[in-house]
């Protein structure tokens, strides 16, 4: 059972639709005991970092997520991915979950608009159980901030006037800056691999 964590922010239904489509058993929940018994967790997120961290804490889920992340696969999506890092500079400095070393900062692509919206190509960096070695795979991005982290945590980058960490990982913790649930077959494959972990 995959639990999609519901803390009041996010693309919960899109993620649920995608998991159901690939035949993965899933549930949207904010119950700490269900988070504890889940086989794996998905942390979605849309919006601003400080609000999302506040909502997570208000829902009483910050500690249980940190604790469970050491025991089972966890995938953060978009803002949920950014929340996995130590801090974010969006609207001032806010602490994240600290599950992957690094910070989240405003992107500074040369000569390109912000936000970065659209289909961009994954450029693989280090091996990941979520990726194949296929070339020319595109996924869908919508974001203005990006992770700043050591390349040993980056399974794939994309090129948007700068190297943008697209898929990050640290042990059983994974983060997609893109939306796998909106990235066609490539995205569904990433979710299939995650659901099989």
């Amino acid at each position: 059972m995959t639990v999609i964590i519901d803390y009041g922010a996010g693309n919960l239904f899109s993620v649920q639709n995608a998991l159901e489509h690939i035949g993965a058993e899933c549930k949207i929940s904010r119950d700490p005991s269900e988070i504890e018994t889940a086989d794996r967790l998905i942390l979605p997120g849309v919006g601003a970092f400080p609000d999302a961290m506040k909502m997570l804490s208000k829902a009483g889920l910050t500690e249980v997520i940190k604790e469970q992340a050491a025991k089972k696969p966890l995938m953060g999506i978009c803002l949920g991915m950014q929340m996995l890092f130590d801090t974010s500079l969006e609207f001032g400095k806010t602490d994240g979950l600290g599950l992957i070393p690094g910070s989240v900062e405003l992107m500074t692509p040369v000569g390109l608009p912000i936000p970065h919206i659209g289909w961009n190509e994954l450029e693989k960096n280090i091996p990941s159980p979520l990726l194949t070695d296929k070339k020319g795979e595109y996924v869908y991005f919508v974001h203005s901030y990006a992770a700043v982290t050591d390349e040993k945590y980056v399974a794939a980058y994309c090129d948007y006037g700068m190297k943008v960490p697209a898929l990050v990982q640290n042990g059983s913790v994974y983060g997609c800056q893109f939306h796998p649930e909106k990235s066609g077959e490539t995205g569904l494959d990433i979710l299939r691999r995650f659901a099989a972990l």
Binding site: N17, H21, S183, G184, L188
Partner: peptide, 8 residues
């Protein structure tokens, strides 16, 4: 459509 199509 959102249950069957996984693009924006």
């Amino acid at each position: 459509a959102a249950k069957k199509v996984f693009v924006p």
